[in-house]
Simulated scan of single mutants.
Amino acid sequence: MNYKENANLKQIHHDEFIKLFEEQNSDFKWDIIQKKIFTMIRQIFEGASQELPPKGIAHNYQSRAMYAVDLMLDWKENYFGEKSIEPMLCEVNFMPDCTRACKYQPNFFNDVFNALFLDSWESTNVTKI
């Protein structure tokens, strides 16, 4: 919600967010929503790498990149009145500003670099999707 200048932002840690989300939406479990988000992100990059450059993203064993994905959660209702929460993509950014990530996760870059360059996923806050 930082698209408005001088907006009053409430910054919360992801653990607190998950707890609040599940308290406010008791019919929906965060792990199911998160799985939908991860599936969407994976599909974005699979689609973006289907074509050769310059139309698509090229695969290169010697290269690494970091992206930020902005999304929103949308309430959907099917024909039978059953509700679901679906992720909606807002934008994807190459080499994003990581100031807030570092503020809330002091080991942010250590975790990211361990995953990207050392293929080390243990004891990190990085999830392989």
Rank of each mutant, 00 (worst) to 15 (best):
P106G: 02
G81P: 06
Y104P: 01
M88L: 15
P106W: 09
D119C: 00
L52N: 11
V112T: 00
C90A: 13
L52S: 12
K10N: 15
A101E: 10
I12T: 09
W30S: 03
K36D: 07
E22C: 02
I41C: 10
D27C: 10
A101T: 01
I37K: 15
W121G: 02
S49M: 15
V112M: 01
N60M: 11
A68W: 10
A58G: 13
M72R: 15
D15Q: 13
I18H: 02
E16G: 07
E22P: 05
N107K: 09
L116M: 06
F21P: 05
D74A: 15
F28A: 06
V69P: 01
K35T: 01
N114E: 08
C98W: 05
Y104T: 09
D119S: 11
T124Q: 10
I37F: 06
Q105D: 00
I12V: 08
E51S: 13
I41V: 10
F109M: 15
I32N: 09
K29S: 01
N93A: 07
Q24K: 02
G56Q: 06
H59G: 13
P54D: 01
H14Y: 10
D31V: 01
D97G: 12
E82R: 07
D15R: 11
F28C: 01
T127E: 09
D70L: 11
I44W: 08
N110D: 11
